[in-house]
Design a protein around this nucleic acid. Structure first.
Lengths: 172, 172
DNA sequence: GTAACCATGTAAGTGGTTACATGATTGC
DNA sequence: GCAATCATGTAACCACTTACATGGTTAC
């Protein structure tokens, strides 16, 4: 259950409303912890109950801006030390490949080309961010942030290469 | 919802009982579609209802051996042509790294070393399988099977390298 | 024959997804 | 002023997880 802690981190970086968070998740955190606005609002409600965050309704506006409280910060530090599971991977394309091996050619080349295109475009986007945000001397904070981005870059690079190899295996 | 189709594929390869499937999932399919025995029994029940598989109670035994029926095979072929989503990644370690960047050093080196060890050991296991099962001329079926294994090898290789880089980023 | 284990299940809980609702704000 | 959009939700559903149950089989 990392969503509340991802939200706490995001709120530490900058106090935000639910919709702000939904947008920021979409553009940055989504690649390692995607969340919809429904999840985010539900979780913000729980976190307010727990006393981890505080909601400030904007004067003249329907928005509520949330701030991380000291209890939220303490919870984040406590949680960071908990054991971490290796993330589970569930890839329906590999299931399809196994079905192809069992049944004979199923015409999966199109699926593989689609996926290759997705990974190539994500990789290009991440590399652009790396150039823009980390093309200089880095302090510790920036080095850790870059390590997070490098996880995405490494993942997409590997995926691109694998797709090409798998296409060759189907083709030959 | 790929579990039923992973099970159909497994049953095509060899008719099996629920506990057989649970064991085989653990040793091979688990790395791209893990499932517990509870999930497997429930799904086998649904698949029998749907007429995709047939259950044969063993004479003198509590085991039920399931076989894939033609309708199951047809369903598998139909499903293989459906669009495939790129799998979602949710990695709580990256959330922790982002918290570290926001809060200051949280001592995540231990978590990273644990994960590195996990990936190294999985990688060694996959490479052993690759040597044992694919160290020869390969027909198409074997090439596809090797492509599936290569997905695991590529993933673990990338993860090992990333962990080392991330440890360096925290250390320096 | 009894203890340990094996195969098959049931039940409750949780996080995430999808579909829909509502009222406030902005653009024209 | 009216339509489109925005911010904040509610509700139902579903796959997966975890904990427990039951009755048959095997080892000794």
């Amino acid at each position: 259950m990392s969503l509340p802690h991802a939200l706490l981190t995001s709120l530490l970086e900058r106090p935000s409303s639910g919709s702000d968070l939904a947008r920021r998740f979409d553009s940055s955190i989504a690649f390692f912890w995607p969340a919809t606005h429904q999840q985010i609002y539900r979780e913000l409600g729980r976190m307010e109950q727990a006393g981890w965050v505080e909601a400030m309704p904007e004067a003249r506006g329907r928005r509520k801006v949330y701030t991380c409280l000291p209890a939220g910060r303490a919870e984040l530090e406590r949680w960071a030390r908990e054991p971490v599971d290796v993330p589970v991977v569930r890839d329906a394309l590999l299931v399809r490949l196994r079905a192809d091996a069992a049944l004979g050619p199923l015409g999966l080349e199109g699926h593989l080309r689609d996926r290759l295109a997705t990974h190539e475009s994500r990789l290009a986007a991440y590399e652009e961010i790396a150039r823009r945000d980390f093309g200089r001397e880095l302090d510790r904070t920036a080095r850790v942030q870059r390590a997070i981005l490098e996880a995405g870059i490494a993942h997409e690079t590997q995926a691109v290469q694998w797709c090409r190899g798998a296409l060759a295996a189907l083709d030959a």
